[in-house]
Design a protein around this nucleic acid. Sequence first.
DNA 1: GTAGGGTTAG
Length: 550
Amino acid sequence: MTFISVSSRLLSFLRRRRIGTSSCFQSLSIGVVHFHVNDNIAKPNSIPHSTHSIPNPHIKLQQYLVQKSKSGFDNLDDALAVFDKMLKLRPLPYDFHFNQLLTVLVKMKQYQVAVSLFQEMSSRKIDVDIITFNIAINCCCHSNRVDYAFSLLLSAFKRGFVPDVFTYTTLIRGLLSQHKSAEARLFFTNLIKLNELRPNVVTYSTMINGLCKTGHTQMAIWLFRFMGKSDCKPNTVTYNTVIDSLCQHGLVDDALILQSEMMEKGILPDVWTYSPLIQVLCKLNRWEELSLLLKQMIEDMNISPNVHTFTILVDAYAKSGKLDDAKQIIKIMNERGEYPNIVTYNSLMQAYCSQGQMDEALDVLSTIKSKKMMPNCYTYNILLDAYCRELKLDIAMVLYRNMECEGLSPTVVTHNILLHGLCQLGKTMEALAFFYKIQELGHKPDIIIYQTLFAGLCKSNYVDKALSFFQTMECNGLIPESKTYNIIICGCLWNKKYNEASKLLHKMVDCGFSADALTTSLLQQILTKVQDPTLLAMHQKCLQSGNYEQ
DNA sequence: GTAGGGTTAG
């Protein structure tokens, strides 16, 4: 069942409810209670007022589940065995016992298993409540089955349950996580209009986060400001979400203003408030402000950086060539018990690689292994890239084969690094063979792989081949970017193929690309060879907009 | 029982 069909049915369901069908829901609700009373199997269906009325096996079960909700199950089989035992228990455990078990599975991220148990419970007509439905709906959303989540919502309606703010917030998050932001917005506003939902701080924060993540930052900020004027004020999570989004968009000053604002309002920042701010200040080389912010965080607010925060610092120092500072951070991490993880070590490794200190980089690999950590694809890609840049393709290839021995599947990034390495060495035919080979292995080339291939082919004067692959790429549904055009136009000019270059520039214009500095320069070169009024107009437009580099 | 949870590679 698709979302659209479920969604439209749902909204009509809600509308019907607004037009005086509340009695229908009431009777449905009574029907559910009636079902419990007359059922042959003795099944308690609501939480008893005191523990005196809970049968002894249920008390033991509850104690066991409370313990498991803290520690989790060692493995899935144990959880399933408990479920089987619960099914055999007479009288049957209460709905909240089943909810407890499902919640443990959620904590173990066993979403699909939880949904299966929910289905099993439904088929055995075991009593559930709206919380059970909410857990199942949440699990569907986490498994990217928002369509099934909506069909569960319909089932809940049909069984007389009244969805609550948890149900709707979960579904909104599900839609947003599936990039269905338009549907989420419509769902959210319609529910409010129909008085079905009174959003709480989690609902608003969920919407704001989803809007930020789907590129609707302005709308997210509008909603955030709307919240500020409403009865439901933003909390730390809400502020963190917006601050993070502003940082992602490079709007660090706005983010810093928001961080001051939250403190003035008495909303305490946490480590997650500071991490994106730290990251963006590092990126912009605003070291003095960074040091003030770190001082505020650690000394004034008494917030300790976590592994994530420290890793941001290691990476920033590494990228700025401040290798000693990066090493110092690692030392502090070890002293404070915030031990470096694979990401931290990868950043450190990159620092050594960028300085050409390959022996030290390999030492980091040994450290990773000695600490019983598993190198990941990033680890190998960093090393492979460094060796390729040093034109040591043989070593890179050995490492590439090593990846598979360690159970790591090379990614499209790995293949691009090697393809680039082959092209750099002028081994164009080997590069082409490698390009075919990765496809035979089932890897789909992306736009960057194609760009590497085009650059390699053009460099070796195989521009016709590059043009032919350009068509193949488009047939495969990949949309060229302005960089893609620039590479291939540059190749055409290099090979004196002015008409082909001109055609590509026309195509760029037709596709709505505006010329950047490189395109403008290429355009100028073509105009010295080809008389073309359209390109001339384009070039003049570029010069007027100041989009030109010598 | 619902939100954030973002760090590393081409």
